[in-house]
């Protein structure tokens, strides 16, 4: 049997970990971008594993400069295309990890969105700096154990909630903000095609499971990403021209947050320590807030309401 990789934007031989949700998301998103696309890339997993010198996995024009300036380079490419009269024929797609997008590259991305440059920015959100060995980033979720927010006797891991990056981008008034997930791999292409049909700055965030950093089973990558949505800890929605349209809620109703937290090593301490239960309730309350915000027509389940009530009680006592 013959294996033909000629039409691939990203050719195999890249050195991502096995079970990498980011590699899966990249492969599907980049393929959906279509032909005549120039890609720019921030430093991160996606850049490192696709460009092991002297090889490159990219079968398309690809630029990498620094950690922070993926969006700035994309702006430059956009203005060069404008000068050459190639707008409409060639499109620009900037990519970066969650650190390169939400922490280090935020000012370049914000500037590009504010100027209204026509390109799609895709953020592979694997919820920490995985490439350098799992350091916490602005998109690391509450209570996750990373090497710079270690869980132990005095800490439950990351003490801050995940930065709401899609809402920050939506606040720029850009025409398209989308959130996808590697778990819903059949929908990624549609998100990209809808984004590419719009002119102006566009932002797409793709939840990418990292079995290395999350300490989850590589074979269960898709299940983990699906559970993130089904527990409503990672809401999936699109904002097109200011109108928010959430993905349809799961048929069987929302699941308790424990189902998502339990299989992951980065939340293991919550189930071992005695005070962990109160922290799980806090995470459940975050999920409840997401449910109410994006799916007002769906009834919030009783366990989520209970968690909210308990959190209100806990904060009252400590205040």
């Amino acid at each position: 049997m013959e294996f033909n990789y000629n039409d691939r934007v990203l050719k195999p031989g890249y050195t991502s970990c096995m079970g990498c949700g980011e590699a899966l998301a990249m492969r599907l998103v980049l393929q959906a971008c279509g032909k005549n696309v120039i890609f720019t890339n921030a430093t991160g997993c996606s850049e490192i594993f696709t460009s092991r010198y002297p090889t490159s996995s990219w079968n398309a024009p690809w630029l990498h400069s620094l950690f922070e300036n993926s969006a700035a380079i994309a702006s430059g490419v956009y203005y060069a295309l404008k000068h050459k009269g190639l707008l409409g024929k060639v499109s620009v797609v900037a990519t970066g990890g969650d650190g390169g997008t939400a922490d280090i590259g935020l000012q370049c991305l914000s500037g590009a969105a504010e100027r209204g440059d026509d390109f799609l920015y895709v953020c592979w959100d694997n919820e920490a700096y995985m490439n350098t060995g799992v350091q916490r980033s602005g998109l690391t979720p509450f209570n996750a154990d990373t090497t710079t927010s270690p869980a132990g006797k005095v800490s439950f891991g990351n003490d801050r909630c995940k930065k709401d990056m899609p809402q920050i981008m939506a606040a720029h008034g850009i025409p398209y903000v989308g959130i996808g997930s590697c778990g819903y791999y059949r929908e990624l292409g549609g998100l990209v095609k809808r984004a590419m049909a719009i002119r102006g700055p566009k932002y797409l965030q793709v939840h990418s499971v990292c079995p290395l950093g999350w300490k989850s089973d590589p074979a269960k990558t898709i299940d983990m990403a699906k559970l993130a949505f089904e527990t409503c800890l990672y809401p999936l929605y699109e904002i097109i021209n200011g109108v928010t349209k959430a993905r349809r809620a799961p048929k069987d109703g929302w699941k308790p947050a424990e189902e998502y937290l339990k299989p992951q090593g980065r939340f293991r301490h919550l189930f071992r320590a005695a005070e962990g239960a109160s922290q799980i309730i806090r995470i459940q309350a975050v999920a409840a807030a997401n449910m109410r915000k994006f799916w007002p027509e769906v009834a919030v389940p009783q366990f989520a309401l209970d968690a909210e009530a308990k959190v209100a009680e806990m904060d009252k006592v400590t205040a």
């Binding site: 990789y5 031989g13 890249y14 096995m18 092991r52 002297p54 090889t55 490159s56 996995s57 990219w58």
Partner: peptide, 28 residues
């Protein structure tokens, strides 16, 4: 077929598009 060579750096360290096909990750 892309060739793997570290002897000579290309201008701007440009690697051949899709050159990673030479690296057979199946060995993992």
């Amino acid at each position: 077929s892309p060739k793997l060579s570290m002897d000579k750096l290309s201008v701007g360290c440009v690697a051949m598009p899709g050159g990673s096909l030479v690296y057979k990750t199946g060995a993992w």
